[in-house]
């Protein structure tokens, strides 16, 4: 089955049972609907999103699985980080509902046509979507939470080594 798809698309084999197809954003719906209806890659397993902030893009991987659950096909597309929009897959896969809700909340991607993009795990979240890389976890934690008292005597080991070396040198010179 994968052979007939290979004739039509430029599918790369990553592992013995894992394939990858890179498509443009414009042909997204067409490709997804074609592959899911005319091959045995009928199930959507996961929508994985990675933030490549240095290239100003999100890379989305729609992972399709065969009816036999023995092969996985990753369909990768890039969308811009700002005002990222994609059409929903709700018409093909009901499970896309919750995956898209998740990505909407964590990355701020708008899925046009999905009516269920309400709160997923975060309630009343007012800041930037937390999985975007410009969201700084450490700064957020430092701002919102206290640290335990009594740990201020922590020393930087590199500084400490230098200080002790200098001290030993000074003692040696003084003895001379």
């Amino acid at each position: 089955m994968i052979e007939s798809l290979k004739q039509q698309y430029n599918i790369e084999q990553k592992e013995s049972r894992l394939f990858k197809l890179i498509i443009k954003k414009e042909e997204f719906l067409k490709t997804l609907s074609f592959i899911s209806s005319s091959s045995n890659f009928i199930t959507l397993s996961q929508i994985a999103c990675a933030d490549w902030i240095e290239d100003e893009i999100f890379k989305l991987n729609y992972i399709l699985t065969t009816k036999e659950r023995d092969k996985n096909l990753m369909i990768e597309l890039e969308i811009p980080r700002e005002e990222s929009k994609l059409p929903t897959l709700l018409n093909f896969f009901p499970q896309a509902e919750v995956m898209e809700r998740d990505l909407h909340e964590m990355y701020g991607i708008e899925f046009i046509g999905n009516p269920t993009l309400y709160d997923f795990a975060l309630e009343n979240w007012k800041e930037i979507p937390p999985m975007r890389r410009e969201f700084d976890t450490l700064a957020y934690v430092n701002e919102h939470f206290d640290f335990r008292k009594g740990r201020e005597d922590n020393r930087d080991v590199k500084v400490e080594i230098k200080r002790r070396r200098a001290e030993a040198k000074r003692l040696k010179n003084a003895n001379k």
Binding site: S45, Q46, A48, C49, A50, D51, W52, I63, Q95, M99
Partner: peptide
Amino acid sequence: EFAYYMAGDGTEKIRRMQVKGPSL
């Protein structure tokens, strides 16, 4: 089925690890 998507970026940190558990 527990499924993980993982992307590396050439550094010592993982760029992205996305978990899909059966409950999702």
